[in-house]
């Protein structure tokens, strides 16, 4: 199994039968995109999970850093007015 380390890693996204968007399913090794797609088919859709598959080189993904978690996500925590539930619906408003 040593040669698998020579192959690049790919992230697999599968759109399920009822889903509208592709969801991350896992990752795999493959020598190129075509083979990655086929491996993804075998590994992640063999129980009829999907109707569409994307593969993306893992190196092409830019991820947020865990160290920056606070700066990235904290500020949204105390702003309840960004949620629709913050607002009361006035009586008499129709079609809402």
């Amino acid at each position: 199994m040593s040669s698998s380390t020579d192959w690049p890693l790919w992230e697999v996204f599968v759109r399920s039968r009822r889903g509208l968007s592709h969801t991350h399913a896992g990752s795999l090794h493959a020598p190129d995109a075509e083979m990655a797609l086929r491996n993804a088919r075998d590994l992640y859709t063999r129980r009829s999970e999907g109707v569409s598959v994307w593969v993306v080189p893992s190196t092409e993904i830019t991820a947020s850093s865990p160290d920056e978690k606070d700066a990235f996500f904290e500020p949204a925590g105390d702003k309840p007015y960004r949620h629709p539930t913050f607002y009361e619906i006035p009586d008499g408003v129709k079609h809402l």
């Binding site: 199994m1 040669s3 698998s4 192959w7 795999l28 090794h29 493959a30 086929r38 491996n39 075998d42 590994l43 063999r46």
Partner: peptide, 12 residues
């Protein structure tokens, strides 16, 4: 099989 992914492919 040479790699895990290929083992699953052949088994399928």
């Amino acid at each position: 099989a040479p790699v895990l992914e290929e083992e699953v492919a052949l088994a399928n």
